[in-house]
Every structure is written in C-alpha cells, then in structure tokens.
Amino acid sequence: MTVTIKDVARLANVAPSTVSRVIADSPRISEETKQKVKDAMEQLGYHPNLNARNLASKSTQTIGLVMPSSKDVGFQNPFFPTVLQGISEGAQEKNYALHMTTGKSEKEILEAVIHMVQGRRVDGVVLLTSRVEDQVVSYLRTRKFPFVLIGKPYKDIEEITHVDNDNVRAMKEATDYLIQLGHQQIAFIGGTKELIVTVDRQDGYEKALQEADIPVKGEYIVHEEFLREGGQEAVRELMALKKPPTALVVADDFMALGVLNTLDELGIRVPDDISIVSFNNVLLAEMAKPPLTSVDINIFELGYQASKNLIQLVENEKEPTKRLIISHRLVERSSCTELNTARIGKDLI
C-alpha cells in the first residue's frame, strides 16, 4: 500500500500541510517538529515525489555546472574534482541535483548553456572559471538568469555574485616569502592570460617585487595551460635563460608537478638549487618529491559557498549581490630554502 503525506502527518501528530512544509524545508517549522516528521517518514518508508512538486512549482531543483572546455583543463586538473565536491555538498543540503555541461570550444560551451537555460533544465548556474570577455556571463546577465561565478568577474564586479580568493594578496604573500629567504631572481609561471585568476596572481607577484625594489623582468614571466605539460614547457624556457631564476612561484600545483619532473631531468635540485612555491594545496602537493610549499585556497569551500549562494538567489529573487572572499594560507613544506649565494649568477644547466 502506498504511504501518503496524510499517513506521515497522522504518525507525527501534525497537519498534512506541516509535512509539506518540512519537505520544502520551510524556515517557519521548528527543528523539533522537522525531526519528528522526518522520523515518521523514515519509519513509514515515505519518499516525497520531488518531480511532482517541482513540476507544480515550475522548479527543476537542479543546479547547472559550466565546466571549462573539455579539451582544456576541466577533466585533468585536481582543482575541479575538489571544487565539485564542495558544490555537491551545498546542493545536497537543499535537495538539489547537479547538471554538468561543457564543450570543445567557447562557442560550444555557450550553445550548451543556452540549450540548458532555454530548455529550463536548471534553476541556476555555477560557472567554474572566470574569463576575460566571457560570452556565457554576458548571456546569463541578459537573460537575468540566476548564476554564481567562482572567481572574480572581468567587469561589473558589484553586479555579479561571485566566490573568490584574494588572489592578488595571496600571490604577493607567496612571492614575499621567497624574497624573505633572500631570493631576487624569482620567476612567475601562470596560466593563460584569458583567465582572471592568472591576471590577479601576476599582479600580486609584480607588486611584491616592486615593493622590494626588485626589477620585474619580462623573461621571468611565462604563461602556459594549467597542466603538468604547461609546467614542463615553462621551466625549460626559464632554465635556458642566460641568468635563470633561483626561485619560482607557480600558479597551480598541477603545473608545479611538471616543473619538478623537468628540473629532476635537468639535474637541478629542489630546494638546494631552486625554490618553489605553488598554489591550491591539493593532495599531490603533499605527495610530490620534495613536498611542495603551497598556498591553500580552500577549494572545497569555494564550491560549497558557490552552490549555497546560488540556491539563495534561486529561491529569493530579492537576494542581494554578494562578493564572498574565501581565506587562504601558506602551507610550508620542503620545496623552499634560503638562497645559496654561492650559486648566484651561475648557470645551473
């Protein structure tokens, strides 16, 4: 026999309308009553028909996730599984499902988002990267469709809810750390210039050098993909310089893994010959040889806050625009040491 809301209400000794409000997670219902109703639902084996409820409310109870290009870093860099865990937890707390989309190009991604929005497949969208002149952001704003951006918007910052780190400050602190160890020949390995996170982290790197009266050298700034191969290509270029750097700030742990691999091939020792600070503090930073000093940007929290605040936007159209800055910290390991002055000016190759 099918269990109904009335059966749950009878066992919990509440009105059927109260059971409905508990299922909808209404803030008007006390935690004590919610627990009593949930206990009755569990005892009777009652499962609410969310599809029927969503159809009646014209809600899909689903969040859309817009991944980077499928030919890019989206399914390779450890950043994304971790941020997806945070998004998923935030969604599950409110009984929202996830719908992921991507494409092989920016045009394909935009088309997929248009299809997702116009087909009413989702109630709102989380964008996992922030790009310069992002067509997806422009489209969603034109449609006035709820979305949250992980990263800083390229423009109209005060009009877009976003979750980010203070990447300028974080990179400045990472570079300052190397300067305090006596390094002045410090190179920057960043992602592509189309990503706002790259722009901000390079800004922080340059500010640290300028405040320390260290010249910013163009040959010490290299941009590659946020991939291990990107780190390999970048460090080969830097180590081939007539005066190679004594320290590196690398904008991503996955890139830094490629840096370590290539330095080992070249016979350059970390940290004896060169020091490295990287970003994200994913598990591979701790497992690397040597373990990497890395800036922990709380990736899980970035995802969790993104989905939590998107749901608030979906459920309350008057929800104000927010700028949420997630804290960071430098985790010191074995990839940095004080400058070996005996090696200054010496070709490491």
Score class of each variant (00 low, 15 high):
residue 307 S to N: 13
residue 301 E to Q: 11
residue 300 F to K: 10
residue 282 V to I: 14
residue 321 T to R: 08
residue 309 N to F: 06
residue 281 N to D: 11
residue 323 R to D: 13
residue 279 F to P: 09
residue 286 E to G: 12
residue 295 V to D: 02
residue 328 H to Q: 03
residue 290 P to D: 08
residue 306 A to N: 09
residue 308 K to V: 14
residue 324 L to C: 02
residue 310 L to W: 02
residue 318 K to N: 13
residue 299 I to Q: 01
residue 296 D to W: 02
residue 325 I to N: 04
residue 292 L to S: 04
residue 281 N to Y: 04
residue 283 L to Y: 13
residue 293 T to F: 09
residue 298 N to Y: 01
residue 292 L to N: 04
residue 303 G to T: 04
residue 311 I to L: 00
residue 302 L to M: 04
residue 283 L to V: 13
residue 328 H to I: 01
residue 325 I to Q: 10
residue 322 K to Y: 08
residue 327 S to E: 03
residue 307 S to Q: 10
residue 287 M to T: 13
residue 286 E to T: 15
residue 325 I to E: 05
residue 291 P to G: 08
residue 315 E to L: 00
residue 284 L to S: 14
residue 289 K to R: 15
residue 296 D to G: 03
residue 287 M to H: 14
residue 288 A to I: 05
residue 295 V to Q: 03
residue 293 T to G: 12
residue 315 E to P: 02
residue 299 I to W: 01
residue 311 I to T: 01
residue 320 P to R: 04
residue 289 K to M: 14
residue 323 R to F: 09
residue 313 L to Q: 07
residue 325 I to H: 04
residue 326 I to M: 00
residue 323 R to L: 08
residue 330 L to D: 06
residue 289 K to F: 15
residue 301 E to L: 08
residue 308 K to M: 13
residue 306 A to T: 12
residue 293 T to C: 12
residue 307 S to P: 10
residue 315 E to R: 00
residue 303 G to E: 06
residue 312 Q to V: 05
residue 310 L to T: 04
residue 280 N to D: 15
residue 283 L to K: 13
residue 301 E to Y: 06
residue 282 V to Y: 07
residue 292 L to M: 05
residue 302 L to H: 01
residue 316 N to W: 05
residue 313 L to G: 01
residue 301 E to A: 05
residue 330 L to Q: 07
residue 324 L to I: 09
